[in-house]
Design a protein around this nucleic acid. Structure first.
Length: 181
DNA sequence: CCCTGATTCGC
DNA sequence: GCGAATCAGG
């Protein structure tokens, strides 16, 4: 097969025009196209003569998600629904004793130990290099998202998901037991 | 430090 | 024409 994935074929230029018109940033478009950097995208955009656009779709686009609104534990009305919620690498010491409370409807996820609030998950467009790309939810639905927590250096996952990802289920189960005893 | 687009310039 | 390096900015 001919591989022209990293050349500016008519199709790719068309997609570039479309995404650029939609207000996506150069890096987002580059990620979407694949095989090109944001510099390449910007360069092409200028060569095509379509620079200044109606910047509205993706306003500042600086920070997709704040670390966490971080409600105080003492706040009576904002208690998390699940005590096993873990964010970043700061809460690995969550008490194992209270993790026995698992929603039956969530039992679908075989080994999902980490619960990330919906509001903190990120879409594929919001996903950045330094974000955890652990998939959460049904990939076939539009609301499919990723964990989005800060990933470990040089790893695609945050501390918690990396631990899950790189350990066989058996070991995980055992470690759990050890942890409890 | 994260990100953005703009510009330059060797290829 | 292409895009890495660089620049200027939020």
């Amino acid at each position: 097969m001919s591989d022209q994935s990293n050349t500016w074929s008519d199709e790719r230029v068309e997609l570039l025009r479309k995404l650029w018109a939609e207000g996506l940033s150069a890096s987002q478009i580059a990620a979407e196209l694949g095989g090109v950097t944001r510099n390449a995208v910007i360069g092409k955009v200028h060569r095509l003569g379509l620079s200044g656009r109606a910047k509205s779709a993706a306003p500042a686009a600086s920070r997709p998600r704040k670390a966490a609104p971080t409600r105080s534990p003492s706040h009576p009305m904002t208690q998390p629904a699940n005590p096993t919620v873990v964010r970043g690498n700061t809460a690995l010491a969550a008490a194992p004793e209270i993790e026995a409370e698992v929603e039956p409807q969530e039992a679908f996820q075989p080994q999902e130990e980490v619960v990330v609030p919906l509001s903190e998950r990120v879409t594929i467009m919001e996903l950045r290099e330094a974000m955890c790309r652990w998939p959460m939810g049904d990939p076939t639905t539009p609301d499919f998202r990723f964990c989005g927590a800060r990933s470990l250096l040089g790893m695609p996952y945050c501390a918690h998901h990396a631990r899950i990802a790189y350990q066989p289920a058996a070991d995980r189960r055992r470690e759990k037991k050890v942890l409890r005893s």
